Simulated scan of single mutants.
Amino acid sequence: MYERILETASWLKERMTTKPETAIILGTGLGQLASEITDSYEFSYQDIPNFPVSTVEGHAGKLIFGKLGGKDIMAMEGRFHYYEGYNMKEVTFPERVMYELGIKTLFVSNASGGMNPQFHIGDLMIIDDHINFFPEHPLRGKNFPTGPRFPDMHEAYDKGLRDLADQIAEEKGIKVQHGVYVGVQGPTFETPAEYIMYRTFGGDAVGMSTVPEVIVARHCGIKVFGISVITDLGGFDVPVEVSHEEVQEAANAAQPRMTEIFREIIKRS
């Protein structure tokens, strides 16, 4: 696997004309941020050696390079999920490649179900921490040379970046929430009882991504900032049905606010 990571990174380096130190993962329905990237060039996942291919509606499946907030960045428009049938090494393959390309900071975004009664659909939740409910750990197996066998996770999401996001949100008049993200395998949306369980365990939002990517990024020493867009609600007195289309629609409406925060953090850090 490590040889394939190096091969992919080498292939990209030969074709890159920029040197980004920041990467962004765009979740379901959040691909519009890509249109904010200037001086851009891109590679389709299917053209990149060893790269998985996203199969989910709302995920374009390409790596985009260019500028955002005046800085060189790279963005994944479309990620890979455990529920698609990939193993964890494949799900987190891009983060391994990012490290080899010199990425120092990773921004992650996702659409998630809110179970905090203070949340509303369309809210932006800055991720303070996460709970890992995936059945397979992304660091299981032989340890990669990019980090320790037993990496510390007491600050998976960088506090300095979270504080900066709060400052920016206050300046721009953008309402933000804070909370704990619960990562589950999917692809079913949660039952009412599952929402209640995750809330009881300390979760504020639940989704089917992000946690494996963050774990591997931290294993590589990459700083992480994450935002969940609350696209549906669950665990309350009245069960609420949800569809993938509704999730995409809610995420789409929240994109400008999330983009503003990402852009300003990149610009100032």
Rank of each mutant, 00 (worst) to 15 (best):
M1A: 10
E3H: 13
I5S: 11
I5E: 14
L6M: 15
E14G: 12
E14P: 10
T17V: 15
T22S: 05
L30T: 01
E36P: 08
I37P: 09
D47A: 14
P52V: 12
E57G: 09
I64N: 02
G66S: 12
L68M: 08
I73F: 04
Y83I: 01
N87I: 00
T92D: 12
F93L: 02
F93N: 07
F93Y: 10
F93E: 09
E100A: 14
L101P: 13
K104D: 08
N110V: 01
S112R: 01
G113C: 06
N116K: 01
F119E: 03
L124R: 00
I126K: 00
I127R: 03
I131G: 11
F133M: 13
F144Q: 07
F144A: 06
P145S: 01
P145T: 05
F150W: 13
M153T: 04
L161V: 00
R162A: 04
Q167F: 02
E170P: 02
V176K: 03
Q177G: 02
V182W: 08
P192I: 11
G202D: 14
A205H: 09
G207K: 05
V214G: 03
V214Q: 01
I215L: 09
V224Y: 06
I227A: 04
S228V: 08
V229R: 05
V229T: 11
V229Q: 09
I230W: 00
F236S: 10
H244Y: 12
E245K: 15
E245C: 07
Q248L: 15
E249Q: 14
R257W: 08
E264D: 10
R268A: 03
S269W: 04
S269K: 05
